[in-house]
Amino acid sequence: MPREQKSEKSNKRGRPKTIKETCELVVRLAKENAWGYVRILGELRKLGLHRLSKSSVKNILKENNLAPSPERSRDSWDCFIKRHFQTLWACDFFTKQVLTPLGPRMFFVLFFINIKTRKVCVAGTSRHPNREWVNKKVKSTLPLLRSHENGKKLLIRDRDTKFSKEFDELFNNNGFSVQKTAFMSPNMNAYAESWVGTIKRECLNHFIVFGERHLRHLIKEYVEHYNATRPHSSMDNVPLEDTPSKKTGNIRCQSKLGGLIKHYYRE
């Protein structure tokens, strides 16, 4: 007699396959946190999922090319920026060639930018920004930086030698932690670098600058526009000082720097 065929519904040995939704949850917990297998398992049990074992979690992560906890817990610079975004400042220098009675000279501009609000504070301009000059400008600028938010704040700076130990101490004594970027890594100070490109592209590159006074005037006019009336794509395309706009009324134009900067508003 032919052997009877086994029923398709016959019992199978071993653990039942983990359902798709649970696998996706394990992967999500691993990607959003630096947790190990046991910690993920504990979180699953909090959610009423008791059937998984430590080895099941391990296999799910392995199948999805997710490394164990020690490797996933290595912090990235992007994660660092996001974690401190609410109280983060960045500083840097940019340069502009200026015509002087002695011929063309390169001037340095020290500035700070608040990463959350995008507001910029220019500390000063100088042909010779040595450590003493930088520290003097920091002392006069710190009250403005402190006024933006309460609590511990963080400052990103590069390893330019003009930023000295005294520079760091001034910030530490005023509620800031100072984080240095890696050597030759301008991308780690991307917000400051981006603003340098913006002021040059939208303002300074359009002018031959005659003297330091002229340079200061150009920067002052542009920073006031940037901080108050210029729409920002990264801030829902509204000005940093967003005020209720009128829906009716005559449209007027406020012009600065020979018409280079224009602000439209309703009366």
Rank of each mutant, 00 (worst) to 15 (best):
E24G: 03
D78Q: 13
R118T: 04
S55V: 04
M106S: 12
W77F: 06
Q86L: 09
N114T: 03
P101W: 12
L47C: 06
S55M: 08
G103P: 11
R28E: 15
K58C: 13
C91A: 11
K116F: 13
E71S: 07
F107Q: 09
T95Y: 12
Q86E: 14
R72G: 00
V27G: 00
E63C: 04
L66R: 09
K31L: 12
V57W: 00
V38R: 15
H84Y: 13
S56Q: 04
S73H: 10
G103W: 10
C23E: 15
N64D: 11
R118Q: 13
K54F: 03
L29M: 10
I60N: 00
C23K: 15
L88A: 05
E43I: 00
D75N: 11
G48R: 07
L25N: 01
V109C: 11
K62M: 04
K82S: 11
C79Y: 12
L61C: 14
S73Y: 07
S73T: 08
G36K: 07
C79G: 10
F111C: 06
F85I: 07
L41W: 01
Q86D: 14
E71K: 11
V57A: 04
R28V: 05
E24F: 08
N114P: 03
L49H: 08
N65P: 07
L29K: 02
L99V: 13
D92C: 06
T100C: 08
V109E: 08
G103D: 07
